[in-house]
Computed example of a mutant assay.
Amino acid sequence: MIGSNPLTNETLPAKPHVHGDGEHIHPHVHSEESQRRIINRLSRIEGHIRGIKNMVQESRPCPDVLVQVAAVRGALDRVARIILDEHLTECIGRAAKEGNIEVEIEELKAALDRFLP
């Protein structure tokens, strides 16, 4: 994903993440549009979390804070869904064409084991 240099605040280019089993290594690259969409969503979530922090600092009622926490959870779930959809379409699709889908599926299973409660 696209990052930024914290010292200059300039946007850095996307760096491909390479993954595989040692024999079948391939870059993990998202389109610029996809990266922009995900980064924008995460930035909104980041702002929402700061808002929740302010609510706690202001001693706002707990039910109000919990409603906002639930909203952030939902927003994070939507980001995860976008990432998963792209992974299934791009990475799993590519692995199927290349004939090494087993590696990609094992990586996905491991990620889902950590992601799902």
Rank of each mutant, 00 (worst) to 15 (best):
G3S: 15
S4T: 14
S4R: 14
S4W: 15
P6T: 12
T8P: 00
E10N: 13
A14T: 10
V18L: 15
H19L: 08
H19N: 08
G22V: 13
G22A: 09
H26W: 03
H30G: 09
S31Y: 03
E32M: 11
E33W: 11
R37G: 06
N40Y: 02
R41M: 10
R41D: 15
S43A: 15
R44Y: 04
R44P: 04
I45K: 03
E46K: 12
H48G: 06
I49M: 15
G51H: 15
I52T: 05
M55H: 03
M55A: 03
R60V: 07
C62E: 08
V65G: 00
V65L: 03
L66N: 01
V67K: 15
V67T: 15
A71V: 05
V72F: 01
R73N: 15
G74N: 04
D77E: 11
V79N: 00
A80Q: 13
I83Y: 00
L84G: 04
D85T: 15
E86Q: 09
E86Y: 08
L88W: 04
L88Q: 02
E90M: 13
E90F: 07
E90V: 13
I92G: 02
I92V: 14
R94A: 07
R94F: 08
A95R: 00
A96G: 01
E98S: 08
N100Y: 07
N100G: 01
N100L: 01
E102N: 07
I105N: 00
E106M: 06
L108Y: 03
A110Q: 03
L112H: 03
L112S: 02
D113P: 00
L116R: 06
L116M: 08
